[in-house]
Measured scan of single mutants.
Amino acid sequence: RQGFVPAAYVKKLDSGTGKELVLALYDYQEKSPREVTMKKGDILTLLNSTNKDWWKVEVN
């Protein structure tokens, strides 16, 4: 499932696989259909980080 999360809630990881991955630093509950819920410690695939406030991710 793809959607947006606050950029301040995730940290980029060095995956070494060519995929950009991020680590969820905090729990986040989606507040609109365009967002996704994540739990602290989740590893997500980063799809787009051009917006400084909201990053598009895919929940694996």
Rank of each mutant, 00 (worst) to 15 (best):
E35K: 05
W54H: 02
K31M: 11
E30Y: 04
S15A: 11
R34P: 05
K19C: 11
V22T: 02
N48K: 07
K39Q: 10
Y26H: 12
G3Q: 02
Y28C: 02
V10W: 01
K31T: 14
A8L: 11
V59M: 11
A8G: 10
E20N: 15
L25W: 03
D53H: 15
A24N: 01
G3P: 00
S32E: 08
K31G: 08
K40G: 05
V36T: 06
K39R: 14
K56V: 14
G18Q: 10
R34G: 14
T37G: 10
E35D: 05
V59Y: 10
N60E: 13
Y28G: 00
D42W: 11
A7I: 03
Y26P: 00
D53M: 14
G3S: 02
K19F: 10
V5P: 01
K11Q: 13
F4Y: 15
L21G: 03
L13Y: 10
L23M: 14
G18L: 09
S15K: 11
A7Q: 05
V57C: 03
D42H: 06
N48C: 10
A24T: 04
V57L: 03
K52P: 15
K56G: 06
Q2F: 07
L47R: 03
W54Y: 06
V10S: 01
V57A: 01
L21F: 12
E58T: 07
T50I: 08
S15L: 14
P6H: 02
A24W: 01
T45S: 08
I43Y: 06
K11G: 06
A24M: 03
R1C: 09
L47D: 01
T50Y: 09
E58V: 07
K39H: 14
N48V: 08
D42E: 11
L25Y: 03
Q2A: 11
Q2I: 13
S49T: 10
D27A: 07
T17L: 13
V10C: 13
V22N: 01
G16F: 11
K12H: 08
P6V: 03
P6K: 03
N60L: 14
V57R: 00
L47V: 11
D53C: 13
D14L: 11
V59T: 15
S32H: 12
L44H: 03
D42T: 06
P6T: 02
T45P: 13
G18Y: 10
A7P: 04
E20H: 14
P33C: 10
Q29M: 13
P6R: 04
L13S: 04
T17G: 15
D42F: 04
S32C: 08
F4R: 03
T37Q: 05
S15I: 12
L23Q: 13
T17W: 12
V10L: 15
K11W: 09
E20L: 13
E58N: 04
N51C: 09
Q29T: 15
N60T: 12
Y26T: 08
D27E: 05
L21V: 08
K12F: 07
E20V: 13
Q2L: 06
Y9N: 05
P33K: 09
E35Y: 05
F4I: 07
K56D: 04
E30D: 05
N48P: 02
T50L: 09
V36M: 11
A24Y: 01
M38Y: 01
G3R: 02
V22A: 10
R1M: 08
L13H: 06
L47G: 01
Y9K: 07
L44A: 07
V10T: 04
W55F: 07
L44F: 11
Y9D: 02
E35S: 07
K40D: 03
N60M: 15
D14K: 13
P33F: 09
D14R: 11
P6Y: 04
F4P: 00
F4A: 02
Q2R: 15
M38T: 04
P6E: 01
L25N: 02
E58K: 08
D14S: 15
K11V: 15
F4G: 01
Y26Q: 14
L47W: 03
T37C: 07
K52R: 12
D42L: 03
N60I: 14
K39P: 00
G3T: 02
G41P: 00
V10E: 00
E20T: 13
Q2N: 08
N48Y: 06
S32V: 04
M38Q: 02
K52A: 12
S15T: 15
R1N: 08
T45Q: 11
Q2D: 05
S32M: 07
G18N: 12
W55Y: 07
K56C: 12
D14Y: 14
D14W: 12
K40E: 07
T37N: 07
K56T: 07
E30A: 15
T37E: 04
N60Q: 14
E20Y: 10
P33S: 11
L23C: 10
L23D: 01
I43G: 01
S49W: 09
K39T: 09
Q2E: 06
W54M: 06
Y26D: 07
I43S: 03
D14V: 13
W55V: 06
Y28E: 00
L44P: 00
W54L: 03
R34A: 13
K40F: 05
M38I: 15
T45F: 13
G16S: 14
D53W: 15
K40T: 07
L44E: 00
L47F: 03
K40H: 05
L46H: 01
A24S: 05
V22H: 04
V22C: 11
F4H: 05
F4T: 03
R34K: 12
I43C: 05
L46Y: 01
L46M: 03
S15N: 13
S49K: 10
M38C: 06
K12L: 11
K11S: 10
Y9C: 11
L21R: 10
G41I: 01
D53G: 08
L21E: 08
N48D: 15
A8Y: 11
L13W: 08
A7C: 07
W55S: 02
N51D: 15
E35T: 07
Q29A: 14
K40P: 03
L47T: 04
T45V: 15
N60W: 13
K52Y: 08
N48A: 09
S32N: 12
V22S: 03
N51Q: 09
V59K: 13
P6S: 02
S49R: 09
T45G: 08
A8C: 13
K12A: 07
L44N: 02
K52T: 12
D27V: 03
N51M: 09
E35V: 05
D53L: 15
K19M: 11
R1L: 09
L47P: 00
K19P: 11
P33T: 09
L46F: 03
K52Q: 11
W54P: 00
A8T: 12
L21Q: 12
K31N: 10
L47H: 04
N48E: 15
A7W: 02
T50H: 10
V59P: 07
K19W: 09
N51A: 07
L21Y: 13
Q29N: 14
E30P: 15
D53A: 12
K40N: 04
D27L: 02
S15D: 12
G16R: 07
W54N: 02
R1G: 07
E30S: 15
P6G: 02
G18D: 12
K39V: 08
V59A: 13
V5G: 01
P33D: 12
E20M: 12
V57K: 00
V36Y: 05
K39N: 08
G41R: 02
L21D: 03
A24C: 10
T17D: 14
L46G: 00
K39E: 06
L46T: 00
V57H: 00
R1W: 07
V5S: 01
G18K: 12
E20R: 14
Q2W: 09
I43R: 05
N51Y: 08
R34M: 13
V59D: 06
Y26E: 11
P33V: 10
S15F: 11
T17F: 13
V5R: 00
L46E: 00
K39M: 09
G16K: 09
K52S: 12
A24Q: 01
Y28L: 01
A7H: 03
V5M: 00
E30N: 08
W54Q: 02
V10R: 00
A8I: 11
N60K: 13
P33N: 10
K31W: 04
A7G: 04
S32P: 04
Y26I: 10
Y28S: 01
K12Q: 08
V59I: 14
E58Y: 05
T45Y: 12
R1H: 08
G41E: 02
P33L: 09
N60S: 13
M38N: 00
L46R: 00
K40W: 04
V10H: 01
T17K: 11
G3F: 08
K40M: 08
S49D: 14
A7R: 11
S15M: 13
K39F: 10
K12C: 08
G18F: 08
M38G: 01
W54T: 02
